[in-house]
Structure formats: structure tokens, C-alpha cells
Amino acid sequence: MLFENLSLFLLIVEKGGLSAAGREAGLSPTSVSERLGALEKHYGATLLSRTTRSISLTDEGRVLVEGARRLLADAESIKSTIKLGSEQISGLVRLSAPVDLGRNRLVPILDQFLEANPNISIDLNLTDGFLDLTGLGIDIAIRYGALPDSTLKVRKLSEGRRVVCASPSYLSAHEIPEHPSELVHQQCILMRFGNSIHREWQFHSQGRTFKVLVSGRRIANDGDQVRQWCLAGHGICIKSYIDVREDLEAGRLVELLGDYSLPGVDLQMVYPSGHATPHRVKILMNEISSKLAV
């Protein structure tokens, strides 16, 4: 019964309330409250602070969230190994990835993985922002660059070469820049990270650094939208090479300023530390590494 109560506790946290969790689990509000009370009695601590309008985790509740996810994941992994054997895997894998990379490169990998493993389910979160992996119960995240959470384990997937590019239609209507400083006269498509807009583009060539403050009428916090605007001829953008490699090879986009390099941003796979990684997650991580690494 403890495992069932732990699962219900996590559902309450995820849904933001006892009533919503009860509806999801098919339980009455009284039953949910009683089982939460049993869990609090078992641990001898208040796990949730409740008002008529909201709930919030106590310090003990936050500790239990991480511990419960770890315990349930380990239990599921043991169950899968015993019931299905080492050749089959089952269960849910939660993962997150940047929007552009996720839609165009990761989803085909996941589709193949799901077809080969009918007992696996995938919960995919596409976002260009950073997420609290532990708090959200995410098993794997694909991310560019250094991460603020140093407690995460990291597996490098590829060197993070970035390119400046534009569509042939844009270049036919505008002067092609030969030097980074000429970008100030161009329409640049800008990426937003939280409250920060990436306006200062930095280049290197022959030991020298060039910083250019660019501008443009289009700004987005979605990397795929930046790419779509660029393909449509609305301006010049910076993209990771892995995101636009096929566009460049097909001639839909043209790389600019090839004599100047941009600071690299490595592509990495990150995952929570501190507990054993479930077998199903390890298998998917290996699949992503073999097919996404370039």
C-alpha cells in the first residue's frame, strides 16, 4: 500500500490538488485525503501545506518527491526485469529537448524506438528553456551548452558548431555580408532565452574577436520558429549546424561568413544523478547517442 500512496502523492503534486488527483485516479476526495494522511502518519511529517485554494510542498514533502520518484522508478525497473526478462523493457520515459532538434531529429528516433519496444511509453517535453529535471520527474534532457545545475550527469553527443545562415530569397534581395560588422545593416532573426535576447553575436578569426550588436523585427523563444522565419526569407539567423545541416545540403539555406567562427555550444544529454538509472532509460539513452551524435 505504501507504493500506491507514494504514487498518489506524486499525482497530487503533479495535478496541484487533491480533488484533481482524485479525478485522475478515480478516487473520492475523502479517500485521497485519508491516503495522504496515512502517508504523513507513516513518515511522521506534514508533506503538504493546504489552503482552500492551493497546496504547496513542505520541506519534508520536497524530500519525499525526489525519493518517491527514485523508489518507484527502481521498483518498476525491478518488476520489468523479473516479469519480462532482460530482452524486453517496459514503462514510461520522460524526456525533454529543444524544440527544433526535438521535432526534426529526435522524434523520428523516438518513433522507431516505440515501434521496436511496444511496452514503452514516451512523455516528450519540447522547450528551449531550462527545466527542473528532478522536480518534474524528467529522465533525460537533450540540451545545448553548459547547464546551471551542476548535479546532473552529462553525456556529450556532438561538438556544437554554429553557423550564420540565410535563405537564397533573402540574399537575392539584400547585400551579402562579407564581414561580421556588416550584419548591423541586415535584418537578423533573434533568439530569446527567458528575459534575455541574443543580440550580441560574437565571431573569431585569426586570433581576433569581433562582437556585433544586431537587430531585427523578428524575435522568438522557439528555435524552430527562428529556422522557419529564416527559411521563409525574413532574415539572417544563427543556428546550430545539426539543426540546419539538411537545409544547407539541400540549398534551402546558405551559410554566411564562413571565414569567421562562432563560439561552439556542445549538444549534451543530461540526466539526474544520485540514483540508479532505470534499464528502459539506459536503453533509450544509448539509442539516442548512437543516432543523434554527429
Rank of each mutant, 00 (worst) to 15 (best):
N221I: 00
L2V: 14
V254N: 07
L36P: 07
D111E: 13
A45C: 14
R217K: 09
V244P: 06
V254P: 02
T277E: 12
Y260M: 05
K41Y: 15
V164G: 11
L124M: 06
E200C: 00
D128I: 02
T151F: 09
E249Q: 12
S158R: 02
D139Y: 06
E14S: 04
V244Q: 01
L284V: 08
R35S: 13
Q186N: 07
L36E: 13
P263T: 05
Q88R: 12
H279W: 15
D266Y: 02
Y241N: 02
V107F: 09
D74I: 09
K41E: 15
M1S: 12
M191Q: 06
R155L: 10
E87Q: 04
G22C: 01
S54F: 13
V107S: 07
L183R: 09
K291R: 13
M269Y: 03
F113I: 04
E4C: 09
L147W: 12
H234L: 11
I283S: 13
S90E: 10
I122R: 05
R94G: 06
L190S: 00
Q268Y: 06
S261H: 06
I138W: 04
G135D: 00
N119H: 07
G22L: 08
E178F: 11
G37D: 10
S181C: 14
R161E: 09
R70G: 10
W201A: 02
G160K: 00
H234N: 08
L27G: 06
P177A: 05
K282Q: 15
R62P: 06
M191V: 05
I55Y: 05
D74E: 13
K153T: 10
A220Q: 02
E178N: 08
S215A: 08
W229M: 07
Y241F: 04
G233E: 01
H204P: 11
Y260F: 12
G251M: 09
R70L: 13
A38V: 11
R252P: 00
K282D: 15
G37E: 10
T30H: 14
G61A: 08
S169C: 13
I142H: 04
R35N: 11
E76H: 04
H179W: 12
L2D: 14
I138N: 03
G135H: 07
E40G: 15
R50I: 09
N221V: 02
D111M: 15
